[in-house]
């Protein structure tokens, strides 16, 4: 079976125009699945749920499978209200990024178990499949070998997706680190994260990029990039490769993944070509069972 490419949910806060332009450009890109919606911060409001659903209609018309992703950290009653609206809309499938979402989606058909559900073994996977999950996104920190072991223990075919490109979402907090950087309180944050289309780099005191601040989310500074590892992924346990939008070069990166998957380019050649497109150095340690920050060549 040919491997599918997905576009993960946008992690950053872009202007309405930039966001609409980006998804317009993705209508013709060789991605099969597009995840939409705000997964990081409920205060972001350039697009609201009806706007995301509109974008979804346009992408569905262009032949994409559209999925609405739910917010990862749920804190308030208003977060739950949005979550219920997402769960209740019947037009598109939903990616659950919290067990509260799993509760609301249980018994509905064909939802997606997102990467933050911490599905580390076949027993937990079975629980969610019994509740209607029909695709599973591996936790970012899971290695390819562990993923293969999990699926073989699960025993039944299940569409499986892995994070293949982009700055890694590593942590979520009640605190907004972008607001903290500007000495602002979260409740009065001025939406400063809109000025950082690829997040705000956090360097060590010797100038080494380490992490990326993106509101309440902390990402890797490096870009997780599995282009060079593709043959093992395609022959192995993965059915869908997730590409996470970065401010520039995303369409070109999608093309590179497609070209390798279709055998038109070698993985190494495509990986080298992607270096010029990334906002920072590459890493792939998680996939190889190592520290995520490492760039490992087997």
């Amino acid at each position: 079976m040919t491997i599918k490419l997905s576009l993960g949910p946008l992690q950053y806060y872009w202007t309405r125009e930039a966001t609409l332009d980006f998804y317009r450009s993705m209508a013709d890109a060789p991605v099969d699945i597009v995840y939409l919606g705000e997964t990081v911060c409920s205060r972001r409001h350039e697009l609201r749920l009806p706007d995301w659903l509109d974008i979804g209609e346009q992408l569905a018309e262009a032949g994409k499978e559209v999925v609405i992703s739910s917010q990862t950290l749920i804190e308030s009653e208003s977060d739950l209200k949005t979550l219920r609206k997402i769960a209740q809309q019947a037009r598109f499938k939903v990616e659950a990024n919290d067990m509260g979402a799993a509760r609301l989606l249980a018994e509905t058909e064909g939802w997606i178990a997102g990467p933050s559900l911490n599905i580390f073994n076949a027993h937990t996977l079975s629980v969610l499949v019994e509740l209607g999950a029909r695709r599973f996104v591996a936790p970012h920190e899971m290695s390819g070998e562990t993923l293969a072991g999990l699926l073989s223990a699960h025993g039944e075919p299940l569409e499986t997706e892995a994070f293949a490109y982009g700055r890694l979402p590593l942590a979520y907090s009640a605190r907004c680190f972008t607001a903290r950087h500007f000495n602002l309180q979260k409740d009065d944050c001025g939406f400063r994260c809109i000025d950082f289309a690829d997040g705000l780099t956090l360097n060590t005191r010797e100038g080494q990029p380490f992490l990326t601040i993106n509101g309440i989310q902390t990402q890797s500074a490096r870009v997780h990039n599995l282009l060079g590892d593709l043959p093992a992924l395609i022959d192995g346990p993965v059915d869908v490769l997730r590409i996470s939008p970065q401010a520039s070069g995303t369409a070109e990166v999608v093309d590179l993944f497609r070209a390798v998957a279709d055998g038109h380019r070698t993985p190494r050649d495509a990986f080298e070509a992607s270096r010029a497109l990334m906002p920072a150095e590459a890493c792939n340690g998680f996939w190889h069972g190592r520290a995520g920050v490492e760039e490992y060549v087997a």
Binding site: N118, L170, Y172
Partner: peptide
């Protein structure tokens, strides 16, 4: 813990060893 417990992979990213696993 400043990060939501169970949803923090900072240590996994830096060292390969995580609170989760």
């Amino acid at each position: 813990c400043v990060m939501v417990e169970g949803r923090c992979a900072l240590s996994a990213y830096a060292t390969g060893e995580s609170p989760n696993c």
